[in-house]
Every structure is written in structure tokens, then in C-alpha cells.
Nucleic acid binder design. Structure first.
Length: 581
RNA sequence: CGGGGUGUGGCGCAGUUGGUAGCGCGCGGCGUUUGGGACGCUGAGGUCGGAGGUUCGAGUCCUCUCACCCCGACCA
């Protein structure tokens, strides 16, 4: 590609409202342009990257026996009604009616379509197992798009679906995907970790996320470096202290003016926060009032809480709602409240004689004890694991890190095959629901995440495998027809003939500085400079994007020297990623 | 949806007590330049997000509205 004709220009400055470095660099490099909130066009350079990411995905999916296909973006709502998600998924699913007033949806994922296909395509255990996948547009009307390309509303996802006869088969398919994903993200040059995760709206029995480290990540993960425990904070557990054994003391009301927070209360009474009980109030999607009680030194994990009470959404309750159940904001406790589902964290069960609110302003109760002073509907783990908390397996302190979720694998089980009636006959002629798994990777997100992890002050450092081009060929010719230009033209043609992907900066109206700056910004792994200065000695200059020094090679051998250099760069990438040569 | 912020040529910005819109970059032309974002001359490009209002007069003040960004509940 000649840069003089490349569609999409580079920018010296990023638009003012762009914050994330990946977003800035991809906009400046002329790879993406926004159309609306969370909606982007991929320009030729960006599209090349995404296509290469997708090519890596295809190769690794095919390697585990995946069969590529293509399912529609627009679905009749019927299948979503059959699975129940038409009703359970909120406004993030875009819905509309066709001209005949039929409900339609824009696909946000494809479990329903796969299950629907299985009804007719899969009848016998002999056809199992299967892995099918496609790369298709998804639309999710996110409450808030953010972070440039990291979180968008319209995106392309590789989603694959495993179809198995039983759980053991699903385990195999799950492991195959795990391995494929591991290779995909390594080949993309990402530093990542696999963590246990919440199943969310997908449902199912197990889920893991592939998390790429980034301070700009939206997720927090907890990692134990001594035993390799790793989990999304949403589901992370931690080793609890042994229960405190202490005789129960009589309940006692104390005046505690101006202590609506745990901090203020602990300071006023001169006790540690761990001797207080914190009350957190939610209004659930079903309308139920959820009253969570946790020790003052811990935080409520809403994902865990949602799962315990089996509610899709929890919204912090208003002061009026809190008073409506007989509690008092800032001075609340479960003692004496009614018409609320009370969920107590294990920490509160295991610590007697806590200080809790008296449900009137300015007063607390001392020596509050579960079972004696109030009853719980659930006693469970609803505490959030934080940086430094002890690992649930080995007790060593864990560290919290931010990360971007680049891939997710789910064991769905029979949730969709049962609701849509996707069944097969076993060897005995008995009918069973197909056991499904579902597995997703957002290709644009992967590209943006690579930029988050691999950039310097000048621009992007693409790994060889997904770089838009292998080589930035920079011509410093003064005229488009002089000897330098002719030499560069010839090298461009020779490299293309040799199968090297070249972005040829043939512009004669730009200074050397502009061309070098653009080459660094765009971030192809190798820069080749053809200039009058080196041409005099019959040489051209090679410089790896991550190298500080250039080397000179004879023009006559340039193609083979470039190929050798590219092979070395590719090999170095693979070695750094822990992949075989 | 709650909270905060921004809308002025393609990009980055300025615009005073309300007085008829400017700078840098970029873009076109001509010339001089050419190894790390060159220089001169010249030219094009703006219903100041939109609507309504106040005023002799609105980019500026008021009301409404739209869009976008950031922080919170969701996810590839």
C-alpha cells in the first residue's frame, strides 16, 4: 500500500475527548474513527489488524476442530422468548418490530440460534461432539460505552459453541477452548492470566475469563503468587479468620451522635471496624428489599449477593425505602426490621457481640448477635476480596490487579438445549438434551488491548503476527521519479513479489521527520529507509520498531535481509510469548 | 439511569463588560527545502451542536433540547 493513497490520515494530536492510550494511538494512527458513542469505523489500517487477529483466531479454532459458519445478526424474537432471555435480558438487547409487527432483536450472542439449528441438524450421539463458530457482529446497547475500543456497543465477536453428549464431553471441549484461547492471546502478544469468573447472563455451571493486564482494565482480579489462585473479584473468595469464641453479652443501646459511617462509629467508640456490623440496603429488580449485613471492615460483593438472593439487579435503596422497612440510614441494623430479605455474611455469623445500628438516628446497639437478636434468611459469603486478603487455598496475601477481559469461556450445560428442545438419541435410543458450551473473543477489543500493552511514547509496537503491515518502507526521495524513488519503487515491488506486506511511504511532499514519526506511530515491526545518503553506498537502512539502532544492508540483498530480519522478529515474538519456534 | 464535564473550520484551542469570529497544525497553489513532525508568499474553509427567548445587537445572558466524554450498576 502506498501511503500517498492510504485512506485515513494520521493526526498529530488526538481529539480532546479521547482518554485511553489505545484509543488515542489508534485514532492518531488513522486506524479507527468514531461514528457515535461506542460505534466505530475501522479504517484500512485498523481493519488489517483486526482481520489478522481474526485470522489467528480462525487458525486456532480450526486446530481444535472448530467449523466456521455464519449466523444472522437479526433474529426473530421467538427463539429468545423460548430461552426466556427475551424477558430476562434488559434494555442492552436492542429490539424492534418488522413491517408485520413481529418482534425482532439484534443479536447480542448466538446460543439460541445454535440450539435452534441443533433441533434439526443433530439427532444422534454419533454426530457429537461438535464445535461450531462464527465471527459476527454483536450489538449490545451498553448503559455506557467507554474506553474507546475497549467497550463498544457494536463489535465483532468470535463466538463458538461446543455440542456434547454429556458433561465429560463438555469438559473436553472446554479444555480444548482453553488451550486454543491460550495460544490465540499468546500469538497476539498479550500478557494475560486465566481467572475463575461469574457466569452472568449466560447461565451455566462454570466460567473462566482470559484477562489481559492493564491499569485501564475494567475488571479487578485477585492473584495469589504462591499457589496460582486467580479469580475475578466478582467471585474471588478469601480465607476467613477462625470464629471468635466469646460469650454473648446482653444487648445494650448507646448514644453515638454523628456516626453514620463505620469509620466515624469505630472512632467514636474506640473499637476496631471489625467489631461493627455494617448494613447495606438494596432494592432488587423483583421489588424485594434486600438487607445485607457484613462486618464493618469488609465490603459487600454485589455479584455474590445477587447470586444468593437470585436477583438480576440490585439498586441501592433510597432513604425512604430504608425507613419503610423500619431501618434508619446510617444507623441501620437487622434488629427489628420487617419485610426484608436479610443476608448475613459469614464474618458476622463468626463474630459475636458486634456493634450495629439501633435503627434510630444517633444510636447504636452493642453486643448484637445473629440468632439471638435477629434471624437471617441467608448466611453466606457476600464479602469482596481485596488487595492483600489471604488466599483461600494457601493463606498467603493475594494482590489485586486491573485487567481487560479479552476472552470468556462458559460451561452452559443444558440450559439452552432444554429450553429450545435440542436433543439427541443415545446408543440405547434414549433422548437427552445436548450439553453446550459457549466461548467468546472480541476481535476489536483484542486489537485495542494489544495497543494498551504494547506502545511507547512514539506509538504502537504491534507484534509481527497482527501488525497492519510487516514493513514500513520509507522513501526519502525528493522527487517521485529520482534515483532514490526508483530504488524504493523497485524494492517495494520486489518485497511484494516476495510476499512481504509493505506500507510504502512514497510521499515526496513530507519531510523525513514526518515520515519517521508516522512509521513509529503506526507501529509496523520493521522500518526500511531508502535515502540518497545510504544509496550512495548502495545500502538501505533496517530498523526494528523496538530497536534503538538501525543497521545498513546492501540494496542488492535487501529483500533477503528484510525477510531474515522479519523472521527473527517473528521468532523473538514467539519466544517472548512462550510459543514453540 | 444517577453524578461531573465539554460542544467555536478536519485536529488542538482562544474569544475580555454582549458590539458582527481568531490562532497553531492540517488542506490547495507557487517557490525554497529534505535523516526525526521545515520555511516564505498566497488561498480555501466556520448557520459558534440545535431550538426558543432577552436585547438596537448574542459565540458570550436565560430556558429547553441534542450529542459526546468521564465516574458509578453490565460484559467480548
Amino acid at each position: 500500500m502506498r501511503m500517498s493513497h492510504l485512506f485515513g490520515r494520521t493526526l498529530r494530536e488526538a481529539p480532546g475527548d479521547v482518554e485511553l492510550i489505545s484509543h488515542q494511538l489508534m485514532v492518531r494512527a488513522g486506524m479507527v474513527r468514531p461514528l457515535g458513542a461506542g460505534i466505530f469505523s475501522l479504517l484500512p489500517l485498523g481493519w488489517r489488524v483486526v482481520r489478522k487477529v481474526e485470522q489467528v483466531i480462525r487458525e486456532e479454532m480450526d486446530a481444535i476442530g472448530g467449523q466456521e459458519m455464519l449466523m444472522p445478526v437479526v433474529h426473530p424474537a421467538d427463539i429468545w422468548k423460548e430461552s426466556g432471555r427475551f424477558y430476562s435480558v434488559g434494555p442492552e438487547m436492542a429490539r424492534f418490530k418488522d413491517r408485520n409487527d413481529r418482534d425482532m432483536v439484534l443479536a447480542m450472542t448466538h446460543e439460541e440460534v445454535v440450539a435452534d439449528l441443533c433441533r434439526t441438524e443433530i439427532n444422534s450421539y454419533r454426530q457429537l461432539p461438535q464445535i461450531v463458530y462464527h465471527l459476527q457482529t454483536k450489538f449490545r446497547d451498553e448503559p455506557r460505552a467507554r474506553g474507546g475500543l475497549i467497550r463498544v456497543r457494536e463489535f465483532t465477536m468470535k463466538d463458538s459453541y461446543s455440542l456434547d453428549a454429556d458433561e465429560a464431553g463438555l469438559d473436553v471441549s472446554y479444555q480444548l477452548h482453553w488451550k486454543a484461547y491460550d495460544r490465540i492471546f499468546r500469538r497476539c502478544g498479550l500478557k494475560f492470566i486465566v481467572v475463575g469468573a461469574d457466569v452472568g447472563m449466560m447461565g451455566g455451571s462454570a466460567s473462566h475469563e482470559f484477562m489481559a493486564f492493564s491499569p485501564n482494565g475494567e475488571d479487578t482480579i485477585l492473584i495469589c503468587s504462591s499457589c496460582n489462585y486467580a479469580a475475578n473479584q466478582e467471585v474471588a473468595t478469601f480465607r476467613r479468620e477462625p470464629p471468635v469464641s466469646e460469650p454473648q453479652q446482653p444487648l445494650e443501646e448507646v448514644a453515638t451522635p454523628n456516626t453514620p459511617t463505620i469509620e466515624a462509629l469505630a472512632e467514636f467508640l474506640g473499637i476496631p471496624k471489625s467489631r461493627t456490623a455494617k448494613a447495606v440496603f438494596y432494592r432488587a429488580g423483583s421489588g424485594r428489599f434486600i438487607f445485607a449485613v457484613i462486618r464493618g471492615d469488609l465490603e459487600v460483593n454485589e455479584t455474590k449477593l445477587r447470586k444468593i438472593v437470585q436477583e438480576g439487579t440490585l439498586i441501592p435503596a433510597t432513604a425512604e425505602e430504608i425507613r419503610g422497612i423500619g431501618a434508619e440510614p446510617g444507623y441501620g441494623s437487622p434488629v427489628g426490621v420487617k419485610e426484608a430479605t436479610i443476608v448475613v455474611d459469614e464474618s458476622v455469623r463468626d463474630t459475636p457481640n458486634l456493634v450495629a445500628g439501633a435503627n434510630k438516628p444517633g444510636y447504636h446497639l452493642k453486643n448484637v448477635n445473629l440468632g439471638r437478636d435477629y434471624q437471617a434468611d441467608f448466611v453466606a459469603d457476600i464479602a469482596s476480596a481485596e488487595d492483600g486478603f489471604p488466599c483461600p487455598n494457601c493463606g498467603e496475601p493475594m494482590r489485586a490487579e486491573r485487567a481487560i477481559e479479552v476472552g470468556n469461556i462458559f460451561k452452559l450445560g443444558t440450559r439452552y438445549s432444554e429450553s429450545l428442545g435440542a436433543r439427541y438419541l443415545d446408543a440405547e435410543g434414549k433422548e437427552h438434551p445436548i450439553v453446550m458450551g459457549s466461548y467468546g473473543i472480541g476481535s476489536g477489543r483484542v486489537a485495542a488491548t494489544i495497543v494498551e500493552q504494547r506502545h511507547d511514547e512514539r506509538g504502537i509496537l504491534w507484534p509481527y503476527e497482527v501488525a497492519p503491515f510487516h514493513v514500513s518502507l520509507v522513501s526519502l526521495a525528493k522527487e517521485s521519479t529520482d534515483e532514490t524513488a526508483q530504488a524504493a519503487d523497485r524494492l517495494y515491488a520486489d518485497l511484494q513479489a516476495a510476499g512481504v506486506e509493505v506500507l510504502y511511504d512514497d510521499r515526496v511532499d513530507q519531510s523525513a521527520g514526518v515520515k519517521f514519526a508516522d512509521a513509529d506511530l503506526i507501529g509496523n515491526p520493521l522500518r526500511v529507509t531508502v535515502s540518497p545518503r545510504t544509496l550512495k553506498q548502495g545500502q538501505v537502512e533496517l530498523k526494528g520498531r523496538s530497536e534503538s539502532e538501525a543497521t545498513l544492508v546492501p540494496l542488492a540483498d535487501a529483500v533477503s535481509a528484510i525477510q531474515a530480519k522479519l523472521a527473527a522478529i517473528a521468532a523473538a515474538d514467539r519466544a517472548a510469548a512462550g510459543l514453540e519456534a
